[in-house]
Design a binder for these strands. Structure first.
Length: 418
DNA sequence: TCTGGGGTCCTAGGACCC
DNA sequence: TCTGGGGTCCTAGGACCC
């Protein structure tokens, strides 16, 4: 059986775990740049604060009910995620981390003990990390995801198990909206409703050829999975990324080319580091810029692509390409909101060999330099050492006005017990 | 003043090959 | 009555996920 373990309101729960003053209080966490609400504690949900709502549209309700507000603190959330995943790894012979706050466990548990097992997992994670989780179990990944949804919305215990034939659950599945299924998004849900398919049960009973025609083979797999036939494999190791993106909105509008160049160099540097982490090298660098689409002012968005002479993960190569691309893109007279870098045509770096144009000796020097850079930054925190072209003042940096301490990863920000 | 960031997969259609 | 057959590669667009 598969179990899907999903942290409840993950980012909000991370803030609560580290700060007992927040227990029982309404908490929200904002997106980068303090833009939108992206996580809410149950108390905040009860106040009617919507997922994804622009922050500035919620300020009244937040002030009125003394809701605690936090900027996204990825140093904290990343570390809490690691703790939860380390714990889950002890609970099953096989685990697949699916996102920052959820993982599939492949477990060998008799049906009659599944509920006890799920409760045990939930209890262990809570005790070891402080993180509340929900557990859903089923014969396929899609059923485990659906069970998790039911665990969250319709149980007190926080666990739910599909044990055996799905026909045992007809009545329940007739009451669950088709859009709750993993793989059915807003567009497909609307299309299905137009054809009279509103509930999970109706989707299970749908005609295969109709599903294949309207939702491709991917949709048909989803339906099979709901019927208890596994079609989605487990991954042994996360496959290397085919594309790496780093981009942010600015904290304030940017009009000068040199500031855009700094930001582009900064994101190029972050993307290169991610690339090295997966032992890859990129052949193509794309830069994109855009103005603020929510503003009633002249709009411009564009992208430029540079093909490198040879695949590289050497930050100066990537920065140079990004700056060339940006030079081509830049038009003065606009108020820019965003710049980003995308690396594609990624190959494994061990597949590269020294070429005529870059002898083995310089190849090795560049490699050692990047190794040193990465290990210093790993030890002292990202940004301890950086390229001058990334800028020092960084007027364009994103807003994070409500940032909590990095409780678990920095000695000088560790929680104090008085 | 203020509206996020980072990914994957599939299909259709066009260009091109023999 | 009639336009060959079979294949690859690339890209854009559209769907989805967290």
């Amino acid at each position: 059986m598969y179990a899907l373990v999903d942290c409840n309101n993950f980012y909000a729960s991370c803030e609560k775990v580290c700060n007992p003053a927040l227990w029982g209080k309404a908490v929200v966490v904002l997106s980068n740049n303090d833009g939108n609400v992206i996580a809410r504690s149950p108390e905040a949900k009860a106040l009617g604060i919507a997922m994804g709502a622009p922050f500035y549209q919620c300020t009244n309700i937040i002030r009125k009910h003394h809701v605690a507000v936090f900027s996204s603190n990825y140093a904290l959330y990343g570390d809490m995620s690691r703790r939860v995943m380390d714990t889950l790894a002890t609970c099953a012979p096989y685990m697949e981390v699916y996102s920052i706050d959820e993982a599939f466990l492949l477990c060998n548990v008799p049906l009659c003990q599944a509920e006890r097992y799920a409760l045990q997992v939930k209890h262990t994670v809570l005790q070891w990390t402080g993180m509340p989780v929900s557990v859903g179990m089923g014969a396929t990944k899609t059923l485990a995801k659906l069970a998790n949804h039911i665990a969250k919305k319709r149980t007190q215990s926080g666990v739910f198990i599909f044990a055996g034939d799905s026909s045992l659950y007809n009545n329940l599945l007739m009451r669950i909206d088709v859009q709750e299924v993993w793989g059915i998004g807003g567009r497909y849900a609307r299309m299905l409703r137009r054809h009279g398919i509103d509930t999970v049960w109706q989707l299970i009973c749908a005609d295969d050829s109709f599903i294949k025609k309207t939702m491709t083979i991917v949709g048909l797999r989803t339906v099979y999975e709901l019927r208890g036939i596994p079609c989605i494999n487990t991954e042994d190791a996360p496959p290397p990324k085919k594309c790496i993106v780093s981009s942010r909105s600015f904290g304030k509008p940017v009009t000068e080319c040199n500031e855009l160049q700094e930001a582009a160099a900064h994101y190029a540097s972050i993307a290169s580091q991610k690339l090295r982490k997966q032992h890859g090298a990129a052949g193509v660098v794309t830069v994109f810029v855009s103005t603020n689409p929510f503003k009633d002012e002249p709009q411009y968005s564009s992208a430029a692509t540079i093909t490198l002479d040879m695949h590289s993960c050497y930050t100066p190569d990537i920065i140079a390409a990004a700056q060339t691309a940006l030079h081509r893109l830049f038009r003065s007279g606009y108020r820019y909101k965003k710049v980003g870098i995308m690396l594609t045509d990624i190959v494994a770096s061990q597949e590269l060999s020294p070429t005529l144009f870059l002898p083995a000796q310089s190849y090795e020097r560049r490699y050692n330099l990047m190794q040193t850079l990465d290990s210093v930054n790993a030890a002292l925190g990202r940004g301890a050492v950086y390229f001058a072209s990334e800028g020092v003042q960084r007027q364009w940096a994103m807003r994070r006005r409500y940032l909590s301490p990095r409780y678990t990863t920095h000695w000088d920000e560790i929680p104090l017990v008085r």
